[in-house]
Simulated scan of single mutants.
Amino acid sequence: MKAPDGTAIDRTKEVILGDCGINWNDDGSFDFDGSGTQPDWDSQETATLAGQTVFFDEAGREWLESQLIPDDAEELPADQIKPWYIDRALRRVEIVNTVEALMVRVTGKKIAAKDCQALTRAITLLLDRSEPT
């Protein structure tokens, strides 16, 4: 597979959690202690955006799975290559995913299916109102 401009896709984007030592200040703030981040290699996951795997091309540019083209396909002209966020459906998926993840982080609970449907409708309405006609 290759990027729409013909550049070879050669890797995925990975997310690795880690921890870093800190020192507490008298005012309650903190500074990093200089020991550096210790990666937790067992936490490694392939990054996704709007439900799609994120890839890098040889030049280091990011592409979503739906943007890739087969090796034998004709490259797209530069003016036809659009960033993923131009695609309204992908933006909606990413916004819903972000809100769902925030809910889990804040409340510790997954959002209920009925609430997710309402959230998706609300986000669709907001996108409809915010996009130029």
Results as ranks from 00 to 15, higher is better:
residue 120 T to K: 13
residue 14 E to F: 01
residue 113 A to W: 11
residue 38 Q to C: 07
residue 98 T to W: 09
residue 17 L to N: 13
residue 34 G to C: 10
residue 83 P to T: 03
residue 7 T to G: 00
residue 19 D to G: 07
residue 55 F to T: 00
residue 25 N to G: 01
residue 3 A to G: 03
residue 7 T to K: 08
residue 4 P to M: 01
residue 1 M to T: 11
residue 36 G to I: 08
residue 16 I to Q: 04
residue 65 E to G: 05
residue 12 T to E: 10
residue 14 E to T: 12
residue 27 D to L: 07
residue 107 T to V: 03
residue 73 A to V: 09
residue 48 T to D: 07
residue 105 R to D: 13
residue 108 G to T: 03
residue 17 L to A: 14
residue 31 D to L: 08
residue 111 I to G: 08
residue 43 S to K: 07
residue 113 A to E: 15
residue 45 E to I: 05
residue 84 W to N: 02
residue 95 I to F: 12
residue 62 E to S: 09
residue 61 R to P: 00
residue 41 W to F: 11
residue 82 K to S: 05
residue 25 N to P: 06
residue 76 L to G: 06
residue 99 V to I: 15
residue 87 D to H: 11
residue 110 K to D: 11
residue 52 Q to M: 06
residue 105 R to C: 07
residue 17 L to E: 14
residue 97 N to P: 06
residue 25 N to M: 10
residue 98 T to F: 11
residue 58 E to P: 03
residue 63 W to M: 02
residue 81 I to V: 14
residue 104 V to R: 14
residue 92 R to L: 14
residue 115 D to G: 05
residue 70 P to N: 14
residue 120 T to F: 08
residue 50 A to Y: 00
residue 41 W to V: 13
residue 1 M to V: 11
residue 26 D to P: 10
residue 112 A to S: 08
residue 9 I to W: 02
residue 112 A to Y: 06
residue 79 D to L: 07
residue 1 M to N: 02
residue 77 P to V: 12
residue 126 L to C: 12
residue 39 P to Y: 05
residue 4 P to R: 03
residue 29 S to K: 08
residue 20 C to P: 00
residue 46 T to S: 02
residue 121 R to G: 08
residue 8 A to K: 08
residue 99 V to W: 12
residue 78 A to M: 05
residue 57 D to W: 00
residue 59 A to N: 12
residue 24 W to F: 10
residue 60 G to H: 03
residue 90 L to R: 10
residue 102 L to E: 15
residue 100 E to I: 14
residue 106 V to A: 09
residue 103 M to K: 08
